[in-house]
């Protein structure tokens, strides 16, 4: 069994490539949101909750920091991993409760390692790699 991942990013091509990469490793993408507001709304609807949320920062309507705070208010155990090109918010992201901050562009192995680390119960077998 592999992790159920929720992707939040305003760039549609990022969704496409991350989903391909994640699927290759056996993970399942259980939701796509294109801004922070959508992320908060969808997070509630995904049942069971995703094991991992990959969160961008700069997005319309609501940014990743605010979305992280709102999601964690609803579900303090949500594992949110920031994946952003904007390094200036890395400290704020961890202060907001994100598990870690990955600076784009990220290598797929880094992504798999982080998923293994923060969703160990979901990842019961090693991803190809």
């Amino acid at each position: 069994m592999m992790a159920r991942v929720f992707i939040v990013d305003d760039d549609r091509f990022i969704h496409k490539v991350l989903e391909r990469i994640l699927s290759f490793a056996g993970h399942t993408v259980v939701g796509h949101a294109y801004n922070g507001k959508e992320a908060v709304e969808q997070f509630l609807q995904i049942r069971p909750p995703p094991d991992i949320v990959l969160m961008d920062h700069r997005m319309p309507l609501m940014n990743g920091l605010d979305a992280t705070r709102e999601i964690l208010q609803m579900n303090p155990s949500a594992a949110i991993i920031f994946v952003s090109a904007d390094e200036t918010v890395s400290e704020e992201a961890t202060e907001a409760g994100a598990k870690c901050f990955l600076t784009k562009p990220i290598r797929s192995n880094t992504l798999f390692d982080v998923i293994r680390k923060y969703a160990p119960e979901a990842v019961t077998e090693a991803a190809p790699g």
């Binding site: 091509f13 990022i14 490539v17 290759f24 700069r58 562009p105 990220i106 190809p128």
Partner: peptide
């Protein structure tokens, strides 16, 4: 520009990595 270029780099890098796999 740098923010968007990093996003584009992410897309290219991930595509290359998929090819390598």
């Amino acid at each position: 520009m740098t923010h968007d270029l990093m996003n584009i780099n992410q897309e290219v890098l991930s595509t290359f990595e998929l090819l390598l796999r």
